[in-house]
Amino acid sequence: MASKPVLTPKLIVRALLIGAVVIALTVLPAFIDSYTLRIATGALMWAGLACAWNIVGGYAGYISFGHSAFFGIGAYTTAILMQSNIGASFFVTLLPAIILSIAVAVAIGGPTMRLRGAYFAIATWAFAEMLLQLATVLDFTGGTAGLSLPAYLNEFFFYYTMLIASAASFIGVWLLIERSRFGFRIKALRDDEPAAESLGIRTNLVKVQSFALSAAITALFGSIYAYWTTYIDPYSVMGPEITDQMVVMVLLGGLGTVWGPALGGVLLWITNRYIWSTFGDTVIYLPILGVIIALVVLFLPNGLISLIVGRQRGKELISRILGKL
């Protein structure tokens, strides 16, 4: 019986490629100015957020329109704990932020994930809007005026924090979903829920686990973001634009793939910043996002990543588009 070769050429190429990307990302801050560094930090954050959304939206097949709620929970937990009357240090606030987001995810995910796709989408959206309204009327969230955090103006710190958080998210998702039994369960329930259940998979448990994992990562980035921007208000950390971007980044990159969200997140964030620096605001960015979603759904349902790896090559895509005209 021939054993499987440990190092196939394909694996070596892949390992070299990943190594090169890691080294490039580590040394990048030495070569760019602080403005570009901020954009790179943002790109890392959005790639990580897209990765988080993809766990529920792409792998479990439940489209959530409420992830801004978890981003906001993370941001507000950090902001509130770092106010001068409590004065916790930044890293201490991460744990309560993550625990709170998991608790909320279990509390709302448990009941709502029993509902099928569309109902889940509506329920998460209603929940996020409810939390947004709550943040505007409560006192300890600062209402519409928002909260200021102690400023820590070290761009390198935030770049590397985002880099570690983002890399940890991708590696975690890759290990958990592409290299473990959990991954088989979650994909089985996406493809056919009754069939998965009949094979003994506790689908409700798996769904809630994936939702909680996704929420925890989202909250982590919310915490870092709050400390990074030093000022938050309900719309900047819980507004619908946050969820909008996460959804579009994953759809564009490729639903249910490991690297699709990274591709979509980085590309769209750079586009966002480019538009911002060209036009002075990002208003035109929203309709562009809308058009991208519609086009991806119509012509590229497997996302950009499918052009690089997988079944749907560019040539085939062009013939598909031409065939529809």
Partner: peptide, 18 residues
Amino acid sequence: DLMALAFTFGIFLFMRGG
């Protein structure tokens, strides 16, 4: 069903942003 949901979401984003 989810693709249709995403599609109308895109249309909505286009309208709101526009």
